[in-house]
Design a binder for these strands. Structure first.
Length: 478
RNA sequence: GGCCCCAUCGUCUAGUGGUCUAGGACACUGGGUUUUCAUCCCAGCAACCGGGGUUCGAGUCCCCGUGGGGUCACCA
């Protein structure tokens, strides 16, 4: 290996949403580059004008940054090997394609897409594999030039040599593919844009990419790329083909069958750390079996030999657990408050945050759940009368509330400790059933069956409001 | 269909010939703590795709099946 610096890249095509699959691949590229003090690059693969979506580029970049996968070079910040947008590099691809034509390693082809389609149909009908028949392979260049000068539509195809391509894949070991499987690839389309295969090789070489870490779907295309490296006489990068993320039915992860948009996880209140952590665990495992892993730890401990070759199912039930774990154990309180900010209802009284947060933190798995866990602290509540008297008759409940009100009214230092003392004494003195009495109070004071611990909750709600709610509950019963 | 890749609990995975009556995590079930829920703790359920080899010994190596996936575009 004579690449002096490890440089990796991810090359999304701006065709819509920021996809978790892109983040997955980016994560491993980033980690490997950083581990080796190298650079991680994001290149925009926008050579398909028909699928181009305005704004998609920024979407991907901002999603990567949100996740902490910050590129060293990209379309926005540039870098020494720009431009990083393929549509701005058209002349470069043309030049290299022409070199191949001049060397007799590529050729002009005038078959139209319609003719190709027909050709394939006939081949399939005849039970043969659909393949370009190479009819312009040996077409005289002078003839071709004439037709081009007349303005005839054409493409440039690679004259794929016979033989086999073999490479050592960092994840899969030796892989060998016969060139028989490969058509004479189109290098330059009739619109003058390069195809992926030409552009990716030219750019990766020019941008000094040392390691190509990409999805398994590219394995069968790898010979096309290696052939080009060889034809140009360029040093070949290392290849690592990652397992493909799957749907539940094991098919390739798709937006039809799965939530694949990074922004959707942002909106659901998934922390970037949790998402990244979850992604690390798909196909890779920590040598000490750790499961909660920071990006930095991942960068330091990643190795290709711990990669699994099977495509993992992208099943996010574990992601939710990880998110809760980060919320309650990993990130700091101040940090949590910051992240909660855009999810908290505008009516929420900010001054309550520090008191409420400790009470609901361990109940919080997704950031937006904050509101439903805390609304009764500051909003008017609805009390279900039937639930109040479900475990005891109305008369008893009424007297329970009345006595409780008296006791609570008398408290001069309103705190969870003083509340607890009064209420526990009350329960013991009257020998009321604990679960009935406490649940009744909970319902009366919060309107909910499930809340944080009662005394602490009451302490936060405040003496006046608690008493008011108890009165209200009592009036419901009579 | 050709070619390529892959195959351990429902899911994510550990496992690189013997320590595997296969370990962990999520989920699920039961129990404990507890005024509810949640957290936490404990326990349980649950897998080496099948068949042949190689070997004293195979989840681990080889072959054949089977199954799944990917790919065969002027999309990436």
């Amino acid at each position: 290996m004579s690449f002096k610096v490890v440089r990796t890249r991810v090359a999304p095509s701006p065709t819509g949403i920021a996809h978790v699959g892109t983040l997955y691949i980016a994560l491993f590229n980033y980690a490997f580059a950083k581990q080796n003090n190298g650079q991680f690059i994001v290149r925009s693969e926008d050579t398909d004008r028909s699928r181009y979506v305005e704004g998609a580029e920024e979407l991907v970049l901002s999603a990567l940054k949100w996740a902490g996968i910050t590129p060293d070079e990209d379309v926005e910040k540039g870098g020494p090997y720009g431009p990083y947008r393929q549509s701005e590099r058209l002349k470069i691809y043309q030049r290299y394609a022409q070199k191949l034509v001049a060397a007799g390693q590529a050729y002009y082809c005038f078959v139209t897409p319609e003719e190709l389609r027909q050709m394939r149909e006939e081949q399939i009908k005849a039970g043969r594999p659909p393949k370009y028949d190479g009819r312009y392979r040996d077409y005289p260049p002078e003839e071709a030039k004439k037709r081009i000068d007349k303005g005839e539509s054409h493409v440039i195809r690679l004259k794929v040599p016979s033989g086999k391509t073999k490479w050592h894949d960092l994840i899969r070991g030796e892989v060998e593919i016969d060139h028989q499987q490969i058509d004479d690839q189109v290098l330059i389309k009739s619109d003058g844009y390069p195809t992926y295969h030409l552009a990716v090789v030219v750019d990766d070489h020019l941008m000094k990419i040392s390691h190509i870490i990409r999805g398994e779907e590219w394995i069968s295309s790898t010979p096309k790329h290696i052939i080009l490296y060889d034809l140009f006489g360029w040093e070949k990068p290392q290849f690592a083909h990652m397992p493909l993320l799957r749907n539940r039915d094991k098919s390739k992860l798709s937006k039809r069958k799965n939530d694949v948009s990074i922004s959707s996880y942002q909106q659901q209140g998934i922390l970037p750390e949790a998402l990244i952590n979850y992604l690390m665990l798909l196909g890779w495992s920590h040598p000490q079996k750790k499961e909660v892993i920071s990006l930095l730890e991942f960068v330091n401990s990643f190795t290709f030999d711990r990669m699994q070759k099977t495509g993992p199912v992208f099943d996010t039930e574990k992601l939710r657990w990880l998110n809760g774990k980060y919320i309650r154990e990993i990130i700091s309180t101040d940090d949590l408050i910051k992240r909660l900010h855009k999810f908290i209802s505008k009516d929420f009284p900010t001054e309550l945050t520090s008191q409420v947060l400790p009470l609901i933190r361990e109940r919080l798995f997704l950031l937006p759940e904050f509101d439903e866990l805390t609304d009764f602290f500051y909003q008017d509540i609805q009390i279900d009368k039937d639930l109040l008297i479900k475990k005891a008759d109305a008369q008893l409940v009424s007297s329970q509330i009345e006595t409780t009100i008296k006791k609570l009214e008398a408290i001069s230092n309103w705190s969870s400790e003083s509340i607890e003392m009064e209420i526990r004494n009350l329960q013991a003195e009257n020998n009321w059933q604990k679960s009935q009495f406490f649940m009744m109070l909970r319902l009366a004071v919060t309107g909910k069956k499930q809340t944080p611990p009662l005394f602490e909750t009451m302490a936060v709600i405040g003496q006046t409001t608690v008493l008011k709610r108890l009165q209200q509950a009592k009036s419901l019963i009579i």
